[in-house]
């Protein structure tokens, strides 16, 4: 039981870190320190943290542009995340990727992807690798319910199902694809029916309780690890903010939002910890620590050096045209062999 409480406390900390990180990101965005698209994970934290608890080191993870939560849940540092949002060299993608393209292979995170459905087959490719080399790594691929309509999703599932790849597909059904409720994009309510057609086991549940998420996902991860094939999991959830910072979310009522906020996954864990005997004071301390850690990551991001031009060039291969440098159109930089510029 003690270990259960320790785990829950750890999960609470992670979920709160994600929540505070996202809140700080929203603030920095309003101040112009972050640009582009910013999709927040607020409201969905139990899923990322539950999945992280259900998997182990060496597993692979792929996510959409709504990618801060899972990266942090896997143990990527707050500094690497915030610095990325600020476009800094110390960011997880060295300032080249931004909010939508977090990457941290050290924790198994293979990206934040921006094209809906585009990463599903890519994730299946990582699972293909596990089968090819014969190790036990499992891949987890996240996407929204909106993505289940696009070809990339179906082709990814089609192959994963056919070849019984060790992968768990997690559909975070937060009810809306941008401004469109699922009732206007899918004739099905139960999305696991789509996976049935690809010969896959389906599971479906509410994702407000991190312990439930962990247990149910663990079953699917174990199945994949044993070589028994992929699982499609639809997890019902809700995003408390708009689709991105530029979306005022006028398509849903305040009432609906308030109702959903009653199932705030963070409040649920907190309550459970109190019920399990953890003292209010201890939680306040933990919360203070999280606040400090997040404040520190913002400070780090503020002070870190900007993204490097040399990385912009060296991270792109084959930029060189096979003509003498003085004949290149202006603005094309020729990369000399062996140079890192």
């Amino acid at each position: 039981m003690a270990s259960g409480i320790d785990e829950l406390r750890q999960q609470y900390r992670r979920m709160l870190e994600i929540r505070r990180f996202e809140e700080e990101a929203a603030r920095a965005y309003a101040m112009g320190k972050i640009g582009g698209f910013l999709h927040l994970y607020i409201g969905q934290e139990a899923i990322a943290v539950g999945v992280a608890s259900a998997t182990r080191e060496g597993d692979y993870f792929f996510q959409t542009y709504r990618d801060h939560g899972i990266a942090l849940a896997l143990g990527m540092t707050l500094e690497a995340g915030m610095a990325e949002l600020f476009g800094k060299d110390t960011g997880c993608s060295r300032g080249l990727g931004g909010s939508m393209h977090f990457f941290d292979p050290e924790v198994g995170f293979y990206g934040g992807w921006g094209i809906v459905g585009g990463h599903v087959a890519v994730a299946a490719g990582a699972a293909f690798r596990s089968k090819y080399v014969g190790d036990e790594r499992v891949t987890v691929c996240f996407f929204g319910e909106g993505a289940t309509n696009i070809g990339g999703f179906h082709e990814g599932l089609s192959l994963a199902g056919l070849w019984k790849l060790p992968i768990v597909f997690i559909c975070e059904n937060n009810q809306y694809a941008m401004g469109t409720p699922m009732s206007r994009t899918s004739p099905l309510e139960d999305l696991t029916l789509k996976a049935q057609g690809y010969g896959m086991v389906g599971d479906r549940f509410e994702g407000h309780d991190v312990s439930v998420v962990k247990d149910r996902v663990k079953t699917a991860v174990d199945r994949a690890r044993k070589g028994e094939g992929p699982t499609f999991i639809e997890i019902e959830t809700y995003r408390f903010r708009g689709h991105s910072m530029s979306d005022p979310a006028k398509y849903r009522s305040r009432n609906e939002l308030e109702e959903r906020k009653k199932k705030d996954p963070i409040a649920i864990v907190r309550q459970r910890l109190l019920e399990a005997g953890v003292k209010e004071q201890a939680l306040l301390e933990l919360e203070g620590e999280v606040d400090d850690a997040v404040a520190a990551c913002v400070k780090h991001a503020d002070e870190a050096p900007p993204a490097e031009e040399s990385v912009m060039w060296s991270s792109v291969h084959a930029p060189t045209m096979a003509v003498p440098a003085d004949r290149l159109p202006r603005g094309v930089v020729r990369v000399e062999e062996g140079s890192d510029a």
Partner: peptide
Amino acid sequence: LDVPMPYASNL
């Protein structure tokens, strides 16, 4: 320039 678009605004 002949690179995919970097995120950072300076780049």
